[in-house]
Simulated assay, not measured.
Amino acid sequence: MISIKNVTKSYGTLKVLHDINLEIPQSQVFALIGPSGAGKSTLIRTINALEDIQAGEILVDGTSVHEKKTDINKLRADIGFVFQSFNLYPHLTALENVTVAPINVKGIGKKEAEEKGKELLSSLGLGEKFASYPGQLSGGQQQRVAIARALAMDPKVMLFDEPTSALDPEMVKEVLDAIRKLAGTGMTMAVVTHEMGFAKEICNQIVFMAEGRIVEVAPPSEFFSNPKTDRAQDFLGKVLNH
């Protein structure tokens, strides 16, 4: 579903992604983990062209993301993206935040969009918050509205860029539960996360990155119990023991 081939990304003379190759099959959940500055967020942002690339190719369901002739808005409608900072419209209610893109981008009727929006918000535990504005919601609730907003476009894949890092610890669980539920529906997902327990439990594969490179890709059972590289062993030693 997502195919990343020989991707290189630089900011001026600084190379932040070095010859990245990764295949994410349909209905699989991949966690991108690693130290800060490893290139995880940059990589996930190249998948929907929030970042450009200098070399290589990225395909989402067979469409080349960075090709000049690709209709990027059409492609982005197929790629749900959840940011760490929610990015909700403060002047719109939770329901309006969820329905604005289906109505304006996909041309779905308001009634249909609202029915679907209510269904999505309810499924994420926000059935009583349709009329609430972002400022009236907790961080965890805002992030779940952001997830519902992404799902309202019926995406083929979902990308999460550290979806819990801006949250208070007690709100992390409700967002992870929402992503866990989504994984159960067979959605193809790539999640940049610092939550190792979540990565271990939910994900089909762990992609460990450091210094702009993919160092190791392995199933969670293998990666957490027996990492193959010194770099991964060192990283796990620090994050699992502190």
Rank of each mutant, 00 (worst) to 15 (best):
M171Q: 15
D19T: 07
G140L: 08
I44H: 05
G39E: 01
M158S: 00
P169M: 12
A146F: 08
K173F: 04
K106G: 09
E211T: 00
Q54P: 02
P102D: 05
L159M: 10
E115Q: 14
D168C: 12
D61M: 08
D78Y: 06
G12H: 07
E222W: 07
L236T: 02
P219C: 09
S41C: 11
S3P: 06
K118I: 10
K228G: 13
V16C: 14
E174P: 01
A210C: 13
F198S: 00
H18P: 00
M153P: 09
P155M: 05
N21L: 12
G237T: 12
P35C: 07
K110F: 04
V157F: 11
A190Y: 09
I44Y: 01
K68W: 11
V7F: 07
F235H: 08
K69H: 14
T42Y: 11
G62T: 12
K111L: 07
P134K: 00
T193Y: 03
A190G: 11
E119C: 03
T63Y: 02
M171F: 15
H242Y: 13
V175W: 01
G62Y: 05
A152N: 07
P169N: 13
S27K: 15
F223H: 06
E162I: 09
K181V: 04
S41W: 00
A49D: 12
L240M: 15
D168T: 10
D154Q: 14
A152E: 02
S122H: 11
K173R: 15
V239C: 08
V98T: 10
A190Q: 04
G140N: 03
S122G: 14
S138W: 09
L43P: 01
F130H: 06
D78V: 00
M196K: 10
H66I: 08
P220E: 05
K5C: 06
P163R: 01
D19C: 12
F223D: 05
L182R: 03
A113R: 07
K106P: 02
R149F: 05
N226T: 11
A152T: 11
E57H: 11
V105E: 02
G80V: 03
L59G: 07
D234P: 01
S41G: 07
S27V: 02
I58W: 06
I108H: 07
T193Q: 11
T63F: 06
L17E: 03
K40P: 04
P227Q: 10
I72P: 09
D78N: 14
A150T: 03
A199H: 04
L92V: 08
N97Q: 11
A218F: 09
L43H: 00
A49L: 12
P102K: 06
A150N: 07
G107E: 09
V215S: 12
E57R: 13
A183W: 03
G107Q: 13
I108Y: 09
E51W: 08
G212S: 10
L95Y: 05
L88E: 01
V157P: 01
K129Y: 08
G197N: 15
I202V: 15
E170P: 04
E128H: 14
T164C: 10
I33M: 13
E222M: 12
K9N: 09
Q84Y: 08
